[in-house]
Design a protein around this nucleic acid. Sequence first.
DNA 1: TTTTTGCTACGTATTTATACCGATATTGAA
DNA 2: TTCAATATCGGTATAAATACGTAGCAAAAA
Lengths: 212, 212
Amino acid sequence: MKEIKILLVDDHKLIRDGIKSIINTTNNIKVVDECSNGREAIDYLGKNANEIDLILMDITMPEMSGIDATEIIVKLYPKINILALTMHSEEAYIMKMIKAGALGYILKDSGREKLIDAIKTVYRKEKYYSNEVSIKLINVLLNEDKIVEPVLSDREIQVLKSITNGNTNREIAKELYISDRTVESHRRNIIKKLNLKNTAELVKYALSNGLV
Amino acid sequence: MKEIKILLVDDHKLIRDGIKSIINTTNNIKVVDECSNGREAIDYLGKNANEIDLILMDITMPEMSGIDATEIIVKLYPKINILALTMHSEEAYIMKMIKAGALGYILKDSGREKLIDAIKTVYRKEKYYSNEVSIKLINVLLNEDKIVEPVLSDREIQVLKSITNGNTNREIAKELYISDRTVESHRRNIIKKLNLKNTAELVKYALSNGLV
DNA sequence: TTTTTGCTACGTATTTATACCGATATTGAA
DNA sequence: TTCAATATCGGTATAAATACGTAGCAAAAA
């Protein structure tokens, strides 16, 4: 049986060391290299793409997130399979990562066996979602309302970012060269789309669900 | 040389497995057991305190945080040394953990060697702070303004929590059985203490600095 | 004991945000 | 090509937040 060659992408060295230590004591699987963010991973693949079968990809990282990196990598190197390995169990992250092209999604509170299982599955180009993840996904599907997932437009994201930075409608208006009434409309639409109540909740939601 | 017996407290199994895998390949150090949150750790120590020399403690965990658990454990079992092992490099977390009684503080982006070094140091009842942590702490000390660290009162924390949950002054007033004018005062004082601008910024600050 | 801090609360005024409404122009998808 | 979504802006009105000042009372600290 051929050895599965893995690239490990996570911003915490101790986590990388730990995962590596788990994987490298398993037959036929080997971590051949590691990167600490998405940008590094892409640079690495530019030279060593042939050395890698599968990428274990964290999501929240400095420089470039795992979502952005995954999107790019699946286009450039379709042979390489990506397994998301993260502590985020929020639907928004899961959906984004899957849409970006990750074949599997496993949480950091899984055990060693599940990790190995997930790696082997994704290596065969089959999908793998850990239990909690599957349940979340099914919930999304069962919820007719949420099937039209509340995706914010580019403009709305811009406004939302500015809001989380503490700017008022008027300030955002200046920043984006539009009327403060328009900003107001955007703010209202965002709150409505996400089914929220006010700006405080909005900021909380945005920060804890990775919208910004 | 006597073996260092460690209790590992972290909510992510894969992280525990990884750390365990790192530590258990080192001589004279052994992870004898693990818990997935602060509450579990305290329950465990209730029966097995004598088996443990040192605790590797994560901060953000469900049920009970590492900060609360540390505070309790150092009182109940002063012989057990606690080394904080977390990905949070924010001053607020560091200060809280040290004040709670942790002897050391090391980040998850440290390497294997630093972890082992930290464990051995804390086992000798000496303090250990990783580089980034030391720098943060020194910055706090050098900053005369920040030496009077903006600590919120219990009441202010209550109000802040409610604000981040999207409640208005009036709703918070009902919740806490006080006047909405009082809530208003609290809100104003909090924003002033933290040198912020408005509620949006306040929510962001609270969430990203672990104030709630 | 004096001082400070925290919690409480009100007055007045201004600024922002929210809730409705409606409108137009553009664009991409069905 | 019709339709839905997006982005733009306005009117009117209320609700909420922010600014600034004041002040009593209890508890803790100096």
